[in-house]
């Protein structure tokens, strides 16, 4: 078992879940309708909870405790892709990001449920089942709004074009890609990306939205290596504000 490779993998997945979970939680009280308010809040709780479980796994591998890992790192120590840290924007932006992200995550955890690292395989089977509700939610709304009115279609189309370069950044390769694949810990970003593209194409084909030509999209990378946009540090400051008042407090 290549431990540095495994840790790098766990960090990036957990960080993605934590940061998008936090962004989702920002919809609490602001959803365009109550049902969506509840949906994004629930997905936030799922994702933050899943990140916590993955940080706990990292703790068993010798990393610091989950609270310290979540709240005490600076932006350059986070391995999430840039897409998840972008501000929520309007609902169409958040929906498209949710769709592109959760489609990938559902496949990622499906692949990881075959991982040679048994604790990761166990939890991935579980998370995969939970994510079914997230992809169901995203697909339902993308299909509905992607074929509804001129305004809903044009809004989703614009967001789709805007998010896509960042979405491809999800698949930025790890320095340990060969080791992960060789040790059968994870099937690799390239395999994930190919399956994701097919799935995205299948859903978008059921709408009046147009996918940009994959070849013309320039992926926005860097997040996995700790190179982030200007939006991550303010998010972390806000997220950790209460914790940092007294890091030793018992809750």
């Amino acid at each position: 078992m290549n431990e540095p490779a495994l840790k790098e993998l766990l960090y990036k997945i957990a960080d993605d879940q934590l940061i998008l979970g936090h962004r989702n939680s920002e919809w609490t009280g602001f959803g365009p309708l109550l049902e969506e308010d509840i949906a994004f809040s629930s997905m936030a709780q799922d994702k933050v909870g899943q990140s916590h479980a993955l940080y706990q796994m990292l703790e068993t591998l010798g990393e610091k405790d989950p609270d310290t890992v979540a709240f005490m790192r600076n932006a350059d120590q986070f391995h999430n892709c840039i897409m998840v840290e972008l501000p929520n924007g309007e609902y169409d932006f958040s929906l498209i990001r949710h769709f592109l992200y959760d489609t990938a995550e559902a496949i990622r955890f499906e692949m990881l449920s075959e991982s040679s690292y048994q604790p990761l395989a166990d939890i991935s089977k579980k998370i995969r089942a939970e994510l079914r509700y997230h992809t169901l939610h995203a697909n339902t709304w993308v299909k509905q709004l992607g074929s509804a009115t001129e305004e809903s279609i044009s809004r989703l189309q614009r967001s789709l074009e805007q998010v896509m370069p960042y979405a491809l950044g999800m698949f930025e390769e790890s320095p340990y890609e060969k080791e992960l694949i060789g040790d059968k810990i994870f099937g690799g970003e390239q395999a994930l990306k190919e399956r994701w593209m097919k799935k995205v194409e299948a859903i978008i084909a059921q709408t009046q939205l147009q996918l940009p030509d994959w070849k013309t999209i320039q992926p926005v990378m860097g997040g996995r290596a700790g190179k982030h946009s200007e939006y991550l540090q303010p998010l972390l400051d806000e997220m950790s504000e209460v914790f940092k008042i007294d890091p030793t407090a018992e809750w």
């Binding site: 049902e35 949906a39 629930s42 997905m43 909870g49 509700y133």
Partner: peptide
Amino acid sequence: LRNTFGPTLCRSI
């Protein structure tokens, strides 16, 4: 079905 997400993670409305 009103919402696959509810007042707690394990409930739908």
